[in-house]
Amino acid sequence: MRWSIEHKETWLHETNPTVKLLLFLPMFIVIVFVHNPNVLINWTIGFTALFMSFSGYRMKHMLLFFVPFFFIFISTSLSMILFGKGETTWFRFGLIHVTEESFYRGVHLGFRTLLFAIFGLMFALTTKPVFLFYSLMQQAKLKPKYAYSFLAAIRLLPIMLEEFQTVHQALKVRRAAKAKGFRGKLELIKRYAIPLLSQSIRRAQRIAVAMEAKGFTNERARTFYYELTLGKYDVYLFVVICMIVAMGYYVADAFPYVPIKDVR
């Protein structure tokens, strides 16, 4: 089964995963405390541009990745827009009550989720798990015990997916892949989960034993096959993020799209 999607390696892939994590995580918090929709719109444009130009993936694939987030954008903003509170009524029909305030609040919320999505995608699509954990071990002093456990677990996922398909076929043949009623559905979940979990637990235990048999202990100092260091690309990323953040504020102030500065 193929898991990686064809892509080019860009400078975003060359950045240090720990640095990337340290730059992106604070952004999630910052975004929550920004209440000016103009700023968020500018940031969305800026970071989308960064993502689209340097993720190394084809436009077709990137747009596909955005499809689910676009739906979340619509649904979060709509629920806020249609049922929010506000003074200036634009439209009222039964339960639906659209006001100016709720409209801007909705749009603001939508862009916030979109920004989260962009940062999440940008991190996931330009970071190899192996490099992330090697970097965390080398730069963030994560204990190898945890890093390698995660890496071993990642290896199990595709195997589990294949097994899920086999279990599905096996149940279908025995006419046990469908069930009626709530209790039936519960029974069905068990039917899938028990073989999958029991296989995974046994496999995980065996892998753990195999890892120790290969000399994996906490006692000795390790060397690393991949050496991850900080480089100029990390500086680039830092500068680019700072520029987009600053420009976002400046443009929001100089050329606002919406007349509201604070949606609260």
Partner: peptide, 15 residues
């Protein structure tokens, strides 16, 4: 425990 052939052998060498 590793996804690639070289990484798996490297894991032993690292140990």
């Amino acid at each position: 425990c590793m996804p690639y052939v070289d990484e798996e052998i490297a894991f032993v060498l690292e140990n």
